[in-house]
Design a protein around this nucleic acid. Structure first.
Lengths: 150, 150
DNA sequence: CATTATAGTTCGCAAAGCTAATTAGTGTCA
DNA sequence: TGACACTAATTAGCTTTGCGAACTATAATG
């Protein structure tokens, strides 16, 4: 166990928002640059959501991925074309399309996962345990930040 | 003062890398959607770096913003065109271009800063002080993560 | 002087995002 | 039943951002 002690009295949310935005934007950019040829970060993010959440509709995917329908239509089309994902029409409501990962998609996800996070993990390994612990908590908070309502 | 206590014994950097990547990517996407009309997140990020770091060259800007030269050339051209930034040729080495914020650019930055971070700040304000403190530290760590070598 | 190295630019391409308009299928209710 | 409204997804067209390759202009070096 480790203790991380911080002054909380004077946290300026506007200032924090500014710094957090810059940090997040830059890291996202850096991560984008690590994309493997063939699968881009957006495709990857969609694919891993499809795997994690299980069969879901295009609309569900849009909500989770925080993207507008036309964007997701294109991402899914690309994933289907490369055989990583399978589409099927809902028999009860033929407007709805369900999407699920194919065995090939699951394999591809598993295979590439290590490599995909290599860049980040490599840098994380250089951090002191205290700081890793901070990021660990921060990751969860970031998720909440985005999840809570749109 | 507040204490944030965390288990550090078993932090799996690969797992953390995965979660952090997802969280960061999604938040970055969400932030992009909050762009004000007229100034995009990339332009904004470049502009605020130019203000923060002071006069600097295109190459310096590329390094800080983690972007390739062609991209920065275009961003700067756009900022110059809208009068937010000023370019000047280095008299000692005429290959080099120095870039600085104009008064108009500084005004624009100041004016819009509040609004630009409103989305994030609004959400941050809902967090408990403990969690704010975590993000505060995380922001600094994220910066280091990207800064340390390319 | 010729060569090599460096700072930026231009060009052409691809990915990812959007809005607006369209298509296809459901539901409602007079 | 038949017209109308609603919903899920798609298509079309546009913008921004990013890249690599090739180029220009300038400096440095042998």
């Amino acid at each position: 166990m480790a203790s991380v002690t911080t002054t909380i009295a004077s946290i300026d949310t506007a200032e924090l928002a500014s710094r957090l935005r810059l940090g997040v934007t830059r890291l996202a950019r850096k991560l984008r640059q690590q994309a493997e040829p063939g699968i881009t970060p957006s495709l990857l993010s969609a694919l891993s959501t499809i795997e994690r959440v299980g069969p879901l509709t295009i609309g569900d995917l849009c909500a989770v991925e925080q993207v507008q329908p036309p964007t997701m239509t294109r991402l899914v089309a690309s994933l289907v074309e490369t055989g990583l994902v399978e589409r099927s029409v809902d028999p009860d409501d033929r407007r709805v399309a369900w999407v699920r990962v194919t065995p090939s998609g699951a394999r591809s996800l598993a295979q590439t996962r290590k490599r995909k996070e290599a860049y980040l993990a490599k840098r994380l390994r250089r951090l002191e345990p205290d700081r890793l612990a901070v990021l660990e908590e921060a990751a969860a908070i970031l998720d909440e930040l985005v999840e809570g309502e749109s």
